[in-house]
Design a protein around this nucleic acid. Structure first.
Lengths: 250, 250
DNA sequence: AGTGGCAAAATTGTCGGACAGTCGGATTAT
DNA sequence: ATAATCCGACTGTCCGACAATTTTGCCACT
């Protein structure tokens, strides 16, 4: 049944190098913003070829642990952008063909909680971001793509306002999955737009006046509404942009 | 205020190659299990050097889109392992110094939902995994490290039993964060172990008899209990390596 | 036809060395 | 000081190579 010995995983040099650097970073020996030695120098220190170092660096760069500002040459330690992480997650979910039902259940768990905390803790700036997102939906309701983007923006703003980064990062991937699904469904339901708008307004109002219970309740209604167009088929994400964007300045 | 031009993000060849392959994968043109062409061949097709292809491959490998079985040479398309993805997320959260409070709130949102769905949908096998995890906690309660691992295993089993991969993948990173926090706190509260055990038993029982409401309620109690040892400080993750403290440079 | 075995062909992991295009910093002119 | 300029340090790519394995094609044997 179980083999007596499990294969000792061999560690290619590039992986060892990557791990070595990663350890320094998570242990905070290399702190955010610090500059890394040059590739040549790293190659010398590790006693490997620059090509090898290069592959290692690629790993860390992808994971968002190191990177460089636009136009900068020197690498520096960065913290993984939530955006990058969440797009990885959502892509993984999409590749696993999760159903809308699964997505919906997760949203039902997270979003109302986020709304509640948002009502409790939102800052004026966050509130403003919220109202702006809602306004954008109202304005762009006609344009399906823009409307969907506005919905995502709204959820993102609520999560941000919750002041809870764990909640926020957990919720972000759901948005990315919601977008394609919502795009297909928003046109199928005549009153979808009106209901979304109403919900957004109620939620925003509740968060404005710091009414936690009401914020949660309306968010629940809002999410529940999505279930109308729900469908058991896997969510399709095919046609959109590949994820790995670099950090952008807006 | 808004710049007229946005910085044109440069696309290094290795990134373009990586994106090209990624697109094929997410579009399902390359399906899970398919073998990729050899590095040399890819280099020829893309018209770049093998080293460049190699860096691109490294990206995809890290993202879990491609990989190879132990001892295999040829690359094949794989689906990102939830485990890998969630450890990335939790590392990101840890690097952002999230507080236990944030973690706790997120757990409070996810775990009861997972428990409820688990009660509704658990298979016999999943139920067994649950009882085994609970049993393990009971047995290892004395050994802090093992006890913590058992707690994590229990949560994981519940999430798995929920039959919802989104929920499951959203919850997984939280476990990884919980572990170090729990390790510190479990010893501070005398009755912590007893209460955990009781909760696990109640939850398991509720899930066994498919009592959704009870499963949720007990999970809420269970999570709420964790708050006792709660603390506003950032969660400390494996501050293992004593290295790096020494020389400053800077 | 199915199997086992074996040598040749193909591949990966690493290494060295090169070169053009840039970025960072020091240098010098305003 | 500030701005224009120059040079060295680096990164992105490419070539070419080689040992260690894997994969594959082929042939003999049951």
């Amino acid at each position: 049944m179980t083999d007596l010995f499990e294969p000792l995983d061999d560690h290619p040099a590039y992986r060892q190098v990557a791990n070595a650097i990663e350890r320094k970073i998570v242990a905070r020996a290399l702190r955010t913003g610090d500059h890394l030695p040059s590739e040549t120098d790293l190659a010398r220190q590790f006693g490997v070829n620059r090509s090898t170092v290069r592959e290692a660096i690629r790993e860390l760069e992808i994971q968002g642990l190191i990177g460089r500002g636009r136009g900068e040459k020197r690498l520096k330690v960065t913290r993984p952008e939530p955006q990058r992480v969440s797009s990885d997650v959502s892509r993984a979910l999409a590749l696993h063909d999760v159903t809308f039902q699964e997505l919906w259940e997760a949203m039902m768990a997270l979003e109302p909680a986020a709304a509640e905390y948002a009502a409790a803790r939102r800052t004026p700036a966050e509130l403003q971001a919220l109202t702006r997102a809602a306004a954008r939906f109202r304005r762009d309701a006609g344009d399906t793509a823009a409307a969907v983007a506005a919905v995502v923006e709204f959820f993102t703003a609520v999560a941000k306002a919750s002041g809870n980064r764990v909640l926020s990062l957990s919720q972000a991937p759901l948005n990315l999955l919601l977008a394609p699904a919502l795009t297909q469904m928003i046109d199928r339901l005549a009153q979808a737009r009106r209901r979304i708008q109403e919900a957004q307004e109620q939620i925003t109002a509740a968060i404005r006046r710091k009414d936690r219970a009401e914020a949660r309740t309306w968010m629940e209604k809002h999410i529940r509404d999505f279930k109308r167009g729900f469908d058991l088929r896997p969510i399709l994400t095919a046609a959109d942009e590949p994820s790995g964007r670099r950090k952008g300045g807006r």
